[in-house]
Structures are given as structure tokens and as C-alpha cells.
């Protein structure tokens, strides 16, 4: 794994990050001396996020992408591994360091309906981070709220509204304004547009792109929408059952996906172009349960290119080209 994929020191970096959730029923089993059963939601993930860029993390349900997003912000403790923010392990930070980190790293969540407190007016919701960090005087905070509302395409009248009085797109703007309140460096956006209609999604993506330009923001975009990924990100990491199976610059990945799972995933995306109809017979089987992932390469039971040793050897994520890493035995030879 290279520390300088494109020369710059990464702003955020995960090193060997894993998160295993014990199963409740297995706690009892452990007491009785049996081996604890766990879900390996995230397994030995290493990746770099470059300042000012957008890294997309894609995968289907159960691939561990949201858990990874939460680990990157220390919203939960890892089982093993580190997350380095500007070189400091966020899980080792003292209170002061952590408080500084929490200002600089914000999150935007998928469901603007669920993530905003329904009993708070919009102005309070956006002001809350400023209140917590005691930024300026109350008058200054209120002025900042108005500026933020303006910035995300709302106006000061919206400050008095409750979330229930806003449309889905407007609520997502409130979530974005609140995330921006403390002028963060990095924003982790977990499916930020997947509950929005396409026209509202377009407005939201345009806004996020503008904000990135204006404030040199770094984004980690967690999504299953490959159209959004292609439009928005610089690099992409593809996850399958807790592991990164491929990582590459967006253009490279879309031009020539290498991992068979990436290829299957891409072939299953419904392209909005009837002149490019694809054979949808291709993806076979269901994703296996994360409780009991297949041995060897987790993808082997569904893989159209499976080989005899795929069920015994777990492939490592290795560079196949500059900036591109793939975890597949098909490429294991040329890798080193």
C-alpha cells in the first residue's frame, strides 16, 4: 500500500480498520465457553482520502459502507486498526484534540426526515453546533445561521419553520447547512441524495459541488448510486461483505473495472439509455449473509470467473496499476 498515491499526504487515512459486531445470542454462548460469533461488518480496510477531493465508497446493502463511514468519524470504536486525521490516530486523541477533530469532520445523513429533530425549528438545528462550541455571541450565531441558510439556497424565513413544514430537498439543505456551520474540512455524506427525487437530487448535488469548490471541502460519499459516483467523485472504493475489493480513480474504474464483482455491479446498473440495453441475466445469486461469509474470496459463489483456489485463498488488495488496487486472484500474479 502506498502512502502517497498522488504525492499529497492524505487528510484522512484508514489503516487495517476492522469492526466486528458480536451477535447477542452468541454472548450467552461465550459465557458457556463456546467461541463468540461475530458479524465482520468492516474487515481490514485501508484507504486514503486526499484533501479537497471526493472519495466514493460504494457497495450493496450489508457491505459495511455505513459502518466504515461511522468509524472514520469515531462515531464508534473499531475492533482493530486506526484512523489517522492529519497524521493523528483519532481513537487515541485526548479530549481537546477530539473536540477539534469533531469540528473539522462532519456528517450528512441519508434521511432528512429522520435525521433532523422534529421539535426544533430549523434555525435552532443549524445554530446548535455553534452553541455547543460557543462560537461568538448569540447575535453573531444568528447572523451566521442566516448566512448559512442563504448559502444552501434557503432564506431566513425558513429559520422559523419546523422540519415537517419543509420538502425533502429543503430538509436535506438544512442538514447540509448544519454540517457547514463550523466550517469543517471534511464531510462524510451517507447516501445524501438517495431519498430525493431526481430533480431535487440534482439541486443537492450541484450545491455540494459548489460548496466543495468554494471551501476546498473534502468529501467521503457513501452511496449505492453509481450515476452519482461517476458524476461526483475523484476516486472510488468498492466494498463487498466488509472488504474493499477494488479501489481506483473514478475514470479508470468506470472505463475498465477489474474486479469481477465491480464488473457485475456495473452491468446491473440500469443506464438511462435504451440504445444501450444490457443482459440482465448476468448477476447470479443473492449476496451471502455477513454472518457466514463464504471462505476464500467472499465473492466466489457468485463470481462468473471463479477458479478452483478462489474458495480457499482470500485475495489481498494489491496494486494492479498506478492508483488502482484489486483484491482478486485473477490479478494476483502480475501484482508483485
Amino acid at each position: 500500500m502506498s502512502s502517497t498515491i498522488n504525492g499529497a499526504e492524505p487528510l484522512l487515512r484508514a489503516v487495517g480498520l476492522s469492526k466486528h459486531f458480536p451477535l447477542e445470542s452468541s454472548l450467552l454462548a461465550t459465557l458457556r465457553g463456546a467461541e463468540a460469533q461475530t458479524v465482520k461488518a468492516v474487515e481490514a480496510v485501508s484507504l486514503d482520502v486526499t484533501a479537497g477531493q471526493t472519495l466514493a465508497i460504494v457497495g450493496e446493502s450489508g457491505s459495511g459502507k455505513s459502518t466504515l463511514g461511522r468509524l472514520l468519524l469515531r462515531l464508534m470504536q473499531p475492533t482493530t486498526g486506526q484512523v489517522l486525521y492529519q497524521g493523528n490516530n483519532i481513537f487515541r486523541m485526548n479530549r481537546r484534540e477530539l473536540s477539534a477533530f469533531r469540528r473539522q469532520a462532519q456528517i450528512i445523513l441519508q434521511d432528512p426526515y429522520a435525521s433532523l429533530n422534529p421539535r426544533m425549528r430549523v434555525g435552532r438545528i443549524i445554530r446548535e453546533p455553534l452553541d455547543i462550541y460557543r462560537e461568538g455571541t448569540v447575535a453573531e450565531r444568528n447572523k451566521r445561521v442566516d448566512a448559512l441558510l442563504e448559502r444552501v439556497g434557503l432564506n431566513s424565513a425558513h429559520a422559523r419553520a419546523y422540519p415537517s413544514e419543509l420538502s425533502g430537498g429543503q430538509r436535506q439543505r438544512v442538514g447540509i447547512a448544519a454540517a457547514l456551520a463550523l466550517s469543517p474540512e471534511i464531510i462524510i455524506a451517507d447516501e445524501p441524495t438517495s431519498s430525493l427525487d431526481v430533480s431535487v437530487q440534482a439541486q443537492t448535488l450541484n450545491l455540494l459541488a459548489e460548496l466543495q469548490r468554494d471551501f476546498n471541502l473534502t468529501y467521503v460519499f457513501i452511496t449505492h448510486d453509481l450515476g452519482v459516483v461517476q458524476h461526483f467523485s475523484d476516486r472510488v472504493a468498492v466494498m463487498y461483505l466488509g472488504k474493499i475489493v477494488e479501489e481506483a480513480p473514478t475514470e479508470t474504474l468506470f472505463a475498465a473495472p477489474q474486479h469481477p464483482y465491480t464488473q457485475v455491479l456495473f452491468s446491473a446498473i440500469p443506464l438511462p439509455d435504451p440504445s444501450r440495453r444490457v443482459n440482465w441475466d448476468l448477476p447470479k445469486g443473492e449476496p451471502p449473509s455477513p454472518l457466514d461469509p463464504p471462505p476464500g474470496c467472499h465473492f466466489h459463489p457468485r463470481c462468473p470467473k471463479v477458479m478452483s483456489n478462489c474458495s480457499t485463498i482470500a485475495p489481498r488488495l494489491e496494486a494492479t496499476a498506478p492508483g488502482q488496487r484489486v483484491a482478486c486472484l485473477l490479478y494476483a500474479d502480475g501484482a508483485n
Partner: peptide, 24 residues
């Protein structure tokens, strides 16, 4: 037309997506 132009995808990397002003 607006609906089709507001789709993020193929090739149109990074350009602003077409906005339909206002709301439903």
C-alpha cells in the same frame, strides 16, 4: 427534457446538473 437532463451519469462528469427550479 428537464428530468432527463437532471440525471447524473455517463460522461457528464462534474458539469452542473440541470435544475428544475421550484418544487413539485
Amino acid at each position: 427534457q428537464a428530468l432527463l437532463n437532471s440525471l447524473p451519469s455517463q460522461g457528464i462528469q462534474r458539469g452542473a446538473l440541470e435544475n428544475i427550479r421550484g418544487r413539485v
